[in-house]
Simulated scan of single mutants.
Amino acid sequence: MPRRRKTLRAMPISRRIGRFRWDLRALGLLALFALVVAGWSWVRAHPEHNPWAPLDLRHPIGMATAGKLAALRDDPGECRAVLDRSEVGYAALDPAGEGECARPDRATLEDYPLAPDTPPVTCAVAAGLEVWRANSVEPAARALFGSDVARIEHLGAFSCRRMYGDADAPWSEHATGNAIDIAGFVLEDGTRISVLGDWAGEDAKARFLRAVREGACDVFATVLSPDYNAAHADHFHLDQGGSWTGACQ
């Protein structure tokens, strides 16, 4: 008796669709895994964007820089470790003051072009000044004037007072040395740029001041400029107090 040939029945269309969906899911998971691996490799190669990488002030400003700097405000020991790791010269000073103006965290930067002197500030302010100089002030001076920065002029850091000189106002960040007021810049070629005299306008000096103001907003909790009010017509107020969502004006 001749044998019957078996015929293969086509797979039901519902099963084919189901298998196709699983194939797509598998491909999607593989693609997602590849993206995660590639993204993690990229983050590891760019520590300025990696929130778990130790902060080094020599790195460019990245997505994680602001958060890392903010974390230093309440941890002077870690902040000093960051300065050491970043090879930033500084001197840690003994505590001073009392009450609302107690300053348990005091440091002075070495080889930093502040003038007329280098005032004690909190370590977090010192770290911010270093990042600001390297990533904003010096690049803007070279780009707009082709010159390096000789001096960054300031109006002081510590002042045991309340905000606005009002006896009922909150205590100023200056009361603990957690702020500094920057009045101007002198370049190596002799060019002087003053917040009071050069903020208005569209020339190179005005563009420089706006560039460094914006750069300061990347590293300080609060930045106040002449755009804020008349009391800041002659300086930039930079501080590391409060939350990272402070003013940038």
Rank of each mutant, 00 (worst) to 15 (best):
V37G: 06
V37S: 11
S41G: 12
W42M: 13
V43A: 03
V43H: 00
V43Q: 01
H46W: 14
H46L: 07
P47Q: 05
H49M: 09
H49Q: 11
P51L: 04
P51W: 01
P54Q: 07
L55V: 03
L55W: 04
D56I: 09
D56W: 09
L57W: 01
R58T: 11
R58M: 06
R58L: 10
R58Q: 11
I61F: 14
I61C: 08
G62N: 13
M63T: 15
M63V: 15
T65S: 14
A66T: 15
G67N: 13
G67Y: 01
K68L: 09
K68M: 12
K68D: 10
A70S: 08
A71M: 10
L72D: 07
R73L: 06
D74N: 13
D74Q: 06
D75K: 15
G77N: 07
E78S: 13
C79M: 13
A81H: 07
A81D: 11
V82M: 01
L83H: 11
L83Q: 06
D84I: 01
D84A: 08
R85W: 07
S86D: 08
E87V: 05
V88F: 02
V88D: 00
Y90N: 02
A91C: 00
D94P: 02
P95D: 08
P95R: 07
A96D: 14
G97S: 06
G99Q: 11
G99D: 11
C101K: 05
A102P: 05
R103M: 10
D105Q: 01
D105H: 02
D105S: 05
R106L: 08
R106Q: 12
A107H: 03
A107R: 03
T108M: 04
L109E: 09
E110C: 01
D111W: 02
P113L: 06
P113S: 00
A115M: 06
P119V: 11
P120Q: 11
P120N: 08
P120W: 09
A124M: 05
A124E: 15
V125T: 12
V125G: 05
G128K: 05
G128R: 06
W132N: 08
W132E: 09
W132Y: 07
A134N: 13
S136I: 09
S136E: 07
A140K: 10
A141L: 05
A141V: 10
A141R: 00
A143F: 12
A143I: 08
L144D: 10
L144G: 08
F145L: 09
F145Q: 08
S147M: 08
V149Y: 00
A150P: 01
I152V: 14
I152N: 07
A157I: 13
F158E: 01
C160Q: 14
C160L: 10
